[in-house]
């Protein structure tokens, strides 16, 4: 498994211009995309946003201006009444005061199942977003992003929620591949801008394919005829992860790290069965998971080839693409991969 060195500082120019595929006259959409393109943007999705020096330096070097920061999730209330915020962000590094921050909230469909609560929920969401922004940045923020894997059956309530969020903010949304392909069925969210999520595209339990990104999977959703009514940014992966599954593949869990070294170094508990895949051979608790013999772990890495091939698929479509957002902002991810090789 390849481990890239800290090549990011050399990658500055790679982010500003690459393959243009023709003049503006030949390809007006492409031109539009590049005109609006800015420096590299990032997602941050963890509870604690504390940047180490490596990451801070990288942000400066890459002239990053905008960071998408997950503030909280919105879930069904469970033991409490009505939708509730969960996984609230614990801390945000004050360095980010100098950046353009876009708060992101992840919304579970179940949280919006009661249409009569949506208006009230949207007010609460707005209040909480503003409170967090004030807490860390001393100001409210105009633009937010809502992440939700909505479907045909949940679209109505979700779009109603978005209408309310649009009332409060310039609201962007995430769009998944299936929502592009089946836009007629799932509907188009009532917002001005989306971000196409080009990661987590595969099946975690399928250890024969990389679930982070696989251009063939992207191509099964997007072709040269594909279009979408709203302009899009594209979110791309730069992270690694380790997938844990039980014997029957019924239960799959994620460790958000590349555990390869650990797995190699604990032969009493793990045995390599194929490249990057290990089987548990003795009971153990590892990274808080209770592992039993027969369970398997697979290390998955974001791969330059998969990213570039996927970008090729997207660029050959009729989608209107503006900017690119890299997932995830942390020193491990940004040193994982030689970013200069990504054809942004």
């Amino acid at each position: 498994m390849l481990k890239y060195c800290y090549a990011i500082l050399l990658a500055t120019t790679a982010f500003s211009c690459t393959d243009h595929n023709g003049t503006p006259e030949e390809n007006p959409k492409r031109f539009q995309s590049e005109m609006s393109s800015s420096a590299t943007q990032f997602y941050h999705w963890k509870k604690s946003l504390v940047l180490d020096d490596v990451t801070k330096d990288a942000l400066k070097t890459m002239e990053t201006k905008r960071v998408y920061v997950r503030y909280f999730d919105l879930e069904e209330g469970g033991q409490f009444s009505g939708p509730q915020p969960t996984y609230l962000i614990d801390t945000i590094d004050q360095v980010l005061k100098d950046y353009d921050i876009v708060p992101v909230i992840y919304v579970k469909n179940e949280a919006l199942s009661d249409v009569y609560q949506i208006e009230q929920t949207s007010k609460k969401v707005k209040s909480l977003i503003d409170e967090i922004s004030m807490y860390y940045f001393g100001k409210t923020i105009k633009t937010i992003q809502v992440d939700c894997d909505w479907t045909k059956s949940t679209a109505k309530n979700y779009f109603y929620f978005l209408e309310w969020m649009n009332y409060y903010y310039d609201t962007e949304v995430t769009i998944r591949l299936h929502q592009i392909k089946y836009a007629e069925e799932t509907g188009v969210p009532p917002v001005g801008k989306g971000t196409l999520m080009c990661y987590n595209v595969g099946n975690l339990a399928d250890f024969d394919r990389n679930s982070i990104l696989d251009a063939q999977i992207v191509a099964s959703y997007i072709n040269s005829e594909t279009s979408y009514p709203i302009p899009l940014d594209v979110a791309l992966p730069i992270y690694d992860q380790t997938v844990v599954k039980n014997r029957t593949s019924e239960h799959v869990r994620l460790i958000n790290e590349n555990c390869l070294e650990d797995l190699k170094n604990h032969p009493r508990h793990f045995k390599e069965v194929s490249d990057g895949t290990y089987e548990v051979i003795a009971d153990t608790i590892y990274r808080t998971f209770a592992l039993s013999p027969g369970m398997q772990l697979q290390v998955e890495e974001s791969e330059i080839s998969a990213i570039n091939e996927s970008l090729e698929v997207i660029r050959n479509s009729n989608l209107v693409i503006n900017d690119y957002i890299l997932y995830h902002l942390d020193s491990t991810s940004i040193t994982n991969i030689n970013l200069s090789e990504i054809n942004l």
């Binding site: 509730q84 915020p85 969960t86 909480l128």
Partner: peptide, 8 residues
């Protein structure tokens, strides 16, 4: 992760 509050 689950708090019964909308107050940060």
């Amino acid at each position: 992760n689950t708090v019964n509050t909308w107050s940060y």
